[in-house]
Amino acid sequence: MRKTSTQRVSELCLKTGYLLISGGAESYRIEDTIERIGKSLGHVVHCYVTVTAVFVEVDGQNSKFIKSTLGGTNLQMIDDINTLSRKLAEKTINPKVFTEEIEKIYQDKHTTDFPFYMKAIGAGFVSMAPMLLFTMPLYYFIYCFIVGTIGYGVSYYLAKLSNMPYADLFISGFIIALLSILLSHFGLVDQYHNIIIGAIMPLVPGVAITNAIRELVMRHALSSAVKLLDALLVASSIGFGIATALILF
């Protein structure tokens, strides 16, 4: 079998790293995956990943880097690339097929996705979980489901309309608080605070916080700090949205 050239390998590794970052993987896992891919293609690859860039060096000759942006979660993409690299390591697919598959994902920047209504229903279910903690009557669950679905839908469409970060979360936090206060105005619920707590659950930056903690434990302090700061900003923008509604009404 002919060896793939260092040029090709470095490009392949960069693209894989970029896709994994945009899918929301932890940085130490990305480094591990890329070095494994290089190993199974017969090259020595060194790799360094921060949240906003990937640096790759192949065989001590060819070094490159690619810029990427923070944010975005797509666990399907992580799983796809993981499966591909595992197959490559087990030699069930040859390097050519692997390169083509990665190129395909990189061109589309898109994997199989759930339709919007499924995600909205999922958001509704997520909103119902905190009600279990407070042991609320059953009709609270239904209101929480509705408000959570609306809040998630608003943030989903606002994120599609504009690239400005944090603003969509501020607005959806505001709308969730507004709806909950309206519910209590009409006498449907007594404690609108619990409805708000449930409905903001789908917007909580769970991925960023979990990854940040795991990276901190693995001593990748740089990317961990960036992610933690981002998560804090996301959480406080939701909080200030709610606070605005609470002050106004």
Binding site: T111, M118, I121, G122, G124, F125, A129, P202
Partner: peptide, 14 residues
């Protein structure tokens, strides 16, 4: 309900 909630968040994060 907690299983449904976990699956719901897995739908959001795809």
């Amino acid at each position: 309900l907690s299983a449904a909630s976990a699956i719901g968040f897995s739908l959001i994060t795809n």
